[in-house]
Design a binder for these strands. Structure first.
Lengths: 188, 188
DNA sequence: CAGGCAAGCGGAGAGCTCTCCGCTTGCCAG
DNA sequence: CTGGCAAGCGGAGAGCTCTCCGCTTGCCTG
């Protein structure tokens, strides 16, 4: 049930081509045609391998995910609240870095995000962090909400349109975490 | 600086045509061409009046906004926490109703949401509600986060893909509000 | 009640995403 | 080694959003 040799080769070619296009021509040039031409395959092949443009982008993103996960591992021994903080701040930095690329993905298929590997991974990690912090709460729901802080369109609006500093976003999230943590303290 | 008579007439025609298309052919048929034909104008006119597809949809949505605002007014005399609850539950019901339409708007231009009149209005209202509840918090930021719970793609994913009942979403939000409220109680 | 011009109009067309289908090719069974 | 066929391939084309620009029209000024 695994990919045929030529298919796997083309998958890699397309991913590599996408990185090259991104570096030399910027995020807005990342169209199926451009990538296909750069990779030396037909557009049909791009869509056969990646289903849609957003999927391709998320696959690209995932190749950068390792760094973030290693950073997280460095906090493994700290208490839940610190780990949650580290996660949220790390995500903010990640988004700040990959803003343009993520905006492309969102514009081309907003719903693909929730099905992407990065989202699922982050959601799982956040869910267990929140559950550790306060067992009485709907952790899976809160995890979604926290991840929504990193919706590219919102983030871009806050940073660009409203000209908020990154610090404001981080401390907003910190306050929220404090609120969540306090939910179990005194079950009013 | 006001719209010329023919322009205003066409704006109304387009809006009415859009409602008709929506009722008879469903949300997915709401394309510029279809609406233009139904309204008896050219596509150019549609885009001259509405800038993009999402804008048109948000204008449509806004015409239904009155009912929600009246409902809110009914709670005006209650304490902030109750008003916030009423707001959030009302929004959930609204989204449940207009899900298909809002998905269209999001798919066609995710970033347009933050600039739309409904978003701005809701953001203002939420900001002051949150500020009333706990003055020590970044109310504008929290208002954004709360509104992100109503991102069409997320909501649809939770309701459809994950098959969560609407009640789960509402009570998740309630818990969050409790957490926020508690933030000021004992400044730890 | 002209005459001039800013504003509006329509639709051809550019540029995109994604589908479809006739042809080609890797892979396994015999 | 060979034959058969599932899987993969390429690119034409459907269908969409939005732009551009030559023509038309409402409205104000004198």
């Amino acid at each position: 049930m695994t990919e045929r040799a030529d298919a796997a080769r083309n998958r890699r070619r397309i991913l590599d081509a996408a990185v090259r296009v991104l570096r030399t021509q910027g995020a807005s040039a990342l169209t199926a045609d451009t990538v296909a031409k750069e990779a030396g395959v037909g557009v049909g092949t791009v869509y056969r391998r990646f289903e849609n443009r957003a999927r391709l982008v998320y696959e690209l993103i995932e190749e950068n995910e390792t760094r973030f996960q290693e950073e997280l591992a460095g906090h493994a021994s700290e208490p839940p609240r610190e780990r949650l903080r580290a996660f949220l701040h790390g995500m903010a930095d990640l988004l700040e870095e990959q803003r343009a690329l993520l905006l492309i993905a969102e514009a081309s298929a907003p719903a693909a995000r929730y099905l992407s590997r990065p989202y699922r991974t982050h959601h799982e990690q956040l869910t267990s962090l929140v559950a550790e912090l306060t067992p009485t709460v709907d952790a899976a729901y809160l995890a979604d909400l926290l991840l929504m802080a990193y919706t590219p369109g919102l983030f871009d609006h806050q940073r660009g349109e409203r000209d908020w500093p990154l610090e404001r976003i981080k401390s907003g999230l910190d306050t929220l975490v404090d609120g969540i943590a306090r939910t179990t303290e005194r079950p009013s």
